[in-house]
């Protein structure tokens, strides 16, 4: 799994790391049981503060995306989110709202939006399936 940081993004650096791990899991680039690099070598490689990577890993752990095994490292859990369904739906709704607002200002109507969302679901499913074959 490769990381790329963008300092021209308004997104905090630790969140960029969090989102890239989440994206890697969603697209099949990282699978349950895969080990993440340890904090020090990743921090050195990306030339970021080690605290930034530590904060990203803590966040991923609290979301249940990764798990730290003492003395072994951090692993992708592949587990279902521990949150209740209504909480999970609420979190996704917040992000959809942002997308709906963007769609409104870019004159993308509901039908197009829904079709696009379905396409993207398919795209990620295909990438995961392809990753499994490799």
């Amino acid at each position: 799994m490769l990381f790329e940081l963008n300092y021209k993004s308004a997104k905090p650096v630790y969140l960029q790391v969090v989102d890239q791990v989440r994206a890697a899991v969603a697209s099949g680039a990282a699978r349950a049981g895969d080990m993440l690099p340890s904090i020090r070598p990743l921090a050195e490689e990306l030339r970021v503060n080690r605290n930034t990577i530590a904060k990203a890993y803590t966040e991923l752990e609290s979301q249940g995306v990764i798990q730290t095994l003492a003395g072994k490292g951090c692993f992708i859990t592949g587990q279902a989110s521990p949150l209740r369904k209504d909480a999970r739906l609420k979190l996704v709704t917040e992000d959809i709202d942002d997308a709906v607002i963007a769609a409104h200002h870019l004159q993308v109507d509901k039908a197009e939006f829904v079709r696009l969302a379905a396409d993207r679901f398919e795209a990620f499913a295909k990438r995961r399936a392809r990753a499994l074959q490799d």
Binding site: I39, R40, A43, R47, R50, N51
Partner: peptide, 16 residues
């Protein structure tokens, strides 16, 4: 680059 990596690794990581 090595200088900065050393500050992150050898220095910072010792007592985060």
């Amino acid at each position: 680059r090595e200088f900065i990596q050393t500050v992150i690794g050898a220095y910072q990581d010792g007592a985060p």
